[in-house]
Write a protein that binds this DNA or RNA. Sequence first.
DNA 1: TTGTGACACAATACTTTGTGAGTT
DNA 2: AAACTCACTTTGTATTGTGTCACA
Length: 939
Amino acid sequence: MRTRSQLKGPQTSGNEAAMKAKHDFESTSCAASEHDPGTLTNISVEAVGRLLKRTNSRGSTGTKKHGSKLRRDEFDGMPDVGSKGNNKETVKRCIRYDALLDGITSTDAKGKTPVEEKVVEQNPPSASPDKEEGTDDSDWEDGLISVPDSRKHTLATEVTVEFDESPSSVKKRSIRRASAEEKELAEFVHKVHLLCLIARGRLVDSACNDPLIQASLLSLLPTHLLEIAEVPKLTAEVLTSLVTWFHHSFHLKGSPVPERSFKSSLAYALENREGSVEEINALSVALFRALNLTTRFVSILDVASLKPDMDISECPNQGTTRRETGIFNSSTLMVVRPNPVSADGLIDSLACKAINVSAEACPTKKSEGPKRKGDLVFEMQLEMALSATAAAACESNSGTNLEDACGNSSDFSSSRKRKKINKSEESPVSSQGISTAVGSRRVGAPLYWAEVYCNGENLTGKWVHVDAANAIVDGEQNVEAAAVACRKSLRYVVAFAGHGAKDVTRRYCMKWYKIASQRVDPDWWDAVLAPLKKLESGATGGLVHLDVNPESASEGLSTSQKCLQEDVSLGHKFSEETSKQHNLNINVESSARSSRAATRNSLEDMELETRALTEPLPTNQQAYKNHPLYAIEKWLTKYQILHPRGPIVGYCSGHPVYPRTCVQTLQTKQRWLREGLQVKANESPAKVLKRSLKLGKVQESETGFFDEDGGEGTIVLYGKWQMEPLQLPCAVNGIVPKNERGQVDVWSDKCLPPGTVHLRLPRIVPVVKKLEINFAPAMVGFEFRNGRSVPVFEGIVVCTEFKDAILDAYQEEEAIRRAEEKKRNEMQAISRWYQLLSSIITRQRLNNTYGENSSSQAARQIHVRDGPFEAQTPNSREGRQSVGSPQGYLQDAKMDALFSVHNEDHEHVFPEEDQSFDDESSVRIKRCPCGFSVQVEEL
DNA sequence: TTGTGACACAATACTTTGTGAGTT
DNA sequence: AAACTCACTTTGTATTGTGTCACA
């Protein structure tokens, strides 16, 4: 069958990211709302809804520029399609869904095939904002919905998607950089997504504490395994048997049902002894907690990219994988044992998902030719990562998992053979190619696991990685490799316990420099986690007693612990800043030495910080450009220098590598001045830069000479170590010391000469001049105006002793000024009112004299549109006449003159006795014996 | 095929201290 | 006559981030 899909209104990457975030949010909020209906959750739902709306609206505008490219990328990772030109050429692209459909026989709880489920995930029922978008999604939906029912085993179903594209535009793909707004939006989405995932993690964590689930798990546990709860010194090895039992008892199945709350999903998984990877790992956490083991639920927060275009530029399969599995679904490292109970289809569906990582990555190419070598290698990498992980697990399992491991290795070799066969095949990906996956272990990025605190590990105890779904114990060092093999980066690894959370990324991520730029602003992240960290610490942070004497303490410490201590002290040598950060650690260390007791949490913090300080040296030069720990001189900027020049901590491509703390930023004297620092006596410049040729020439022509040595043609730079606190000349005899421009540069209070004060008041100069007090204008900065920098002056600098006198005089002057201003305003108001009323009366007179109906009735009607003034004769029987003067105060004389209006033969007069005054409203009513009256408001 | 480094290019950050005519 | 306002014009360079390409 063929489906034609027009790329009318594609989504941007921002949209995609937002969609992903939205999916996660809904998944979180769905469950959350059950716990806490109608409160914060609902508010958050609305807020995120608004964000998504904003995202969508922005996304739709962005599509005008490069939308088709994005949508197409999102769709299937095909090569680029340029904007539609006049010379359109229809290119047919065929997407084979063989890989998707082959072997899919199972249905999930709702009876949907995975393909259908994909459609549902793409357009969640609750996604009202998307529905509002209209045509875009409907087109998108149409294409997928028409995929036939896979249950009918339509093995060679073909979906043809036609794109209007110009081949030439493919070549000249315009490079468009993300705008600041797009970056901001991406960051916004990233942050919201992070919060959603944290919320989700907390939900899972609290579900693991459910007493009913824990009790049920305990009831299933064989009696001999219950003894683990009593073990005084828990080690990873002790856990192995428990994990093995768990792995045998609970099996993985497809993705979870998002509509259900997590707790009920967990109960359902427990009842059926099978569930998603998240559920299985959560059950393991619940079991460990039931056994009184201090346990965390750990999750990789696979969050939308922080950078706008990352979602496009990354391997196309990422979008595919994300779209298909979602973040909470089963793209986790999965070692699925052939399960006699579960239908083959379950495995097949997992196999299908796993294969999607590679098989769906570039379906076009697959449909056109043999499987790419890269895809094969990638699959092999997956297998190898799995093999390595399983091998480690096998070792730690001390043979209990032998069967597993052996099975795995044979699977690996056999699958490798199959890959070779596949490679030699010239046909497109066939159902046979997929079937090789059936029965073998399937892998995806690890997303969930548990951490169990084992007090028997090391001297101080250790958090041990336990992936019960895959029967892996203490495999922390393999997590990164497995994730990398699955093209997932360990940007955020967060451990959840006690309704709190803690970032433990450092434990699993060895190449921090690779993920650092992909993480959100650390200040924001720390602020978000701070309260959660406290909660987490409260739940897991017990005291660790080190009951050994000081000498043997260091002997007793494990090698890693000793390294840790040394490394921390090395870190202190590196920089002051790091030493500040590690104050806590030092305290912990010292307290550990003195009282032999420290909290698990502080020990862990120390461990994580140590990892941060002992990161291995990157192998490529460019990584040193912004590396937080190391630097290469080659990559220093003009304003940077190595001081001190050493120690050399290693080499990269022949370049010596220095600690980043040796890199000092240099500045000019003027710049340092702003920070309240001045160059020490006899310090020579740390660096002298030549000015740019152009600027140098300009100055040369201006000054008539070109000084090579620190004159106009050079920039002289100093380092902070050459600085001392600014020592400005003191104010003497009431004279303010000024700079060469006769002013004081007040960058901060540090820049004020001793004995002076900055009075930041407007109109103060005349006051000081009047008092004949010495002062200097205070320059507070620059602003760029009319193409050049203009100094900004605010207030003055005077000697402190005159401050009070000046302020008193200033108050007086201001009072006088205000009074004068008020008077001026009033006079102006009166004048304007007078003009207005005069013009009205003139108009009236003209009307009376020359108007068509110059009868008395017409003559007596005065009407001013939109004005406060209204006057009517009593004949109108509408009540009083009024003349409102909103602010002004109309002098009686003027007003009397004004209203001595000639009306034909009659001149209005307002005798004193006919006037009345209302005190409350301050309104005076003046009446003419003829019946005409005016209302005057007196203020 | 992939990783690395060099390079190009665009966006962003930093720089930074009038003048003359007309009006009050 | 002094003080004030306003128009004039819209820098130029360095740094950083990112994509492309050549090469090992």
